[in-house]
Design a protein around this nucleic acid. Structure first.
Lengths: 345, 345
DNA sequence: GAATTTTTGATGTACGTAAATCAAAAATCT
DNA sequence: AGATTTTTGATTTACGTACATCAAAAATTC
């Protein structure tokens, strides 16, 4: 049976009050007494009942999510997942605030991080932009012992507690493997459409994609990257022009967002069945394009899993508890039209 | 702020004792009073604090997992996940028992279900075998209000509460899509290796695979199914013989277990690079074969996710709480060597 | 209206933990 | 050894809920 503070007191030969002082680092305990209690805790394998403690404390976990604004369907889906978590807040004792910043805007993001800091939350989850001022802001939060989780796009070197996102180099490699094999012996170059080289996830995906195409499909020509700023209108224009320049194009890898534009350009040119298109993130638009065959494979990161993971990690950090690693890894989902998950209402 | 039983009492103009009687369906409340309390509950949006209730009740959730014995790596992995959940039982208030039965043995499974019933658990999770006596046993448990979750292989028509597993028809379709595209224009037939047609998951996968090959790759010949009973030694023998009979074989879809045998036969014949092999379940052996290139793609269901899902659902059923559908869907993972998750220690 | 039955309320205890209070005991200082 | 300081223990209250007890109030029956 699970040991309680009463068992610790009996084992150590002290009172409940002393056990409480040791457990909660309150003053007024001699070192020799403290060691006695700590030994009893270790001997009995005592683990605090967090639910009981939270009940006693009336505790909740104030959390801040900092998300990019704009039309990016994936990010809107991510926001919907955060709002769903807000709806569950009474049961989960969370108190979630969303702060929005313009996409790819590092100064605004740094300012939002400082605003979040002023609220003194238990933790902050942020879709990062890799810039010195953002890294500095994250370090400030860490100095204040506010847990920080990067979401979707990481910020190496910032001291953040955890990254809730996929390994984007591996994602790019996966796209490369699928592209190479799906195209098979067919002739033609492959194009790459990115959002912005300012975010780490896009840079990593490109790196992985190029690595595999070079290693395993060395005869295949990779065209220079097109940057569409995750903007469907711009992407449609740029891809449209690409399709005119490249009558023999074999494939397109879209590693960012704005896939509405990609799909529209392919279909407008009547080449949706001849060009192999591999894109990222399952959204209503990309799902429809996968079902219709315009997109051949989608590489996805599960926004719901990422949000739940971020919350779990932030709560665990606030409680000083360990994180279950296996549960917090975000997988790279490969979707064909055959293994699509059920559509969410 | 979250309403409590005190708020219900005030809103309904009754005492705490009456609120408790209504909430817990205890006798001694007039109908008119009951309705007053129920209206107050609805008005205030009261949701029971399960953690507080469990603390008060000293409640735990006794659960029984019924798993097939044998060398099936996936099932051993599933068992490891259940044991990991047992290690977490103090924190999660579960009390988990594992019962083992011989693989594909319906009478033994039905007996194990009746044994589980005698323990009067909160719930039972079972890897099903589709047989009348198993269906009857599940119905008995349901009559006793014991929640039942089928794991990995479903049992339609049994009245079980939930299936924690993938859509196996879709899994077979996915395998068909990958097989067709990976083989591309190359000549040659495709073989299918199954474990047993006695389990629903295998039958469904075959159905899905055949459907896609017929729809999208109609020129491709599918050979008759080889049943290897999930036994690596038998699989190696049967596949070895197949490779001799079929010098131009283009691909093999292994929809069951025993993949050690498949890999060994392919490598022994020196045809691991020319035959496209698609298999199920990520295990140490299949992982190594995917990395080396003998297996071209793995379709996986996450055993950890399934076990955690089963526990969540069984606990929710025991508490009369709703199940979060999105969280309980088990995805069909597609793994190439590029998007393999980190290996678990 | 009196007797009987049912319903209701007030209260207490419990779960494990947090946190505070103050008297008593122990340790330290002079 | 006496004075002072520090440590410890006993106790109370709180969180939200479960569950039991029994007296009082209300409703029903004769």
């Amino acid at each position: 049976m699970r040991p309680t503070v009463h068992d610790i007191a009996a084992e150590a030969g002290v009172s409940l009050a002393t056990v409480d002082r040791v457990l909660n680092n309150r003053p007024g305990v001699r070192t020799v007494t403290r060691h006695k209690v700590e030994r009893a805790i270790a001997t009995l394998g005592y683990v605090r009942d967090v639910a009981a403690a939270n009940l006693a404390k009336g505790r909740s976990y104030p959390l801040v999510f900092i998300l990019p604004a704009g039309e990016n369907s994936f990010m809107r889906g991510l926001e919907a997942e955060v709002r769903a978590a807000m709806a569950r807040s009474a049961a989960e004792r969370t108190d979630i605030t969303i702060l929005s910043v313009p996409a790819f805007d590092a100064p605004a993001l740094a300012a939002a991080l400082m605003e979040a800091r002023e609220r003194r939350p238990a933790g902050v989850a942020v879709v990062a932009v890799e810039a010195p001022e953002v890294t500095e802001a994250v370090k400030r939060l860490r100095e204040d012992r506010i847990a920080v989780v990067t979401l979707v796009s990481d910020l190496p070197g910032s001291g953040r507690d955890h990254f809730a996102g996929v390994d984007n180099i591996a994602a790019g490699r996966t796209a490369g493997s699928l592209m190479g094999r799906f195209i098979g012996g067919r002739e033609g170059a492959v194009a790459v459409v990115a959002g912005s080289m300012l975010v780490r996830d896009h840079r990593d995906r490109l790196e992985g994609f190029r690595a595999v195409m070079t290693e395993d499909f060395a005869g295949r020509c990779i065209l220079p990257v097109i940057e569409g700023q995750d903007n469907p209108t711009l992407v449609e224009k740029l891809v449209g022009a690409l399709l005119e320049r490249q009558p023999d194009l074999a494939g397109i890898y879209s590693l960012g967002a704005g896939n509405r534009g990609l799909v529209a350009a392919l279909e407008k040119a009547g080449r949706e069945k001849t060009i192999c298109a591999i894109a990222h993130e399952l959204t209503p638009h990309s799902r429809a394009a996968l079902v219709s065959g315009t997109i051949d494979a989608l590489l996805n990161q599960n926004a719901g899993h990422e949000v739940r993971s971020a919350i779990r990690v932030l709560k665990a950090k606030a409680d000083g508890l360990p994180v279950i690693s296996a549960q917090e890894r975000i997988r790279i989902d490969i979707f064909l039209k055959d293994n699509l998950p059920l559509e969410q209402a």
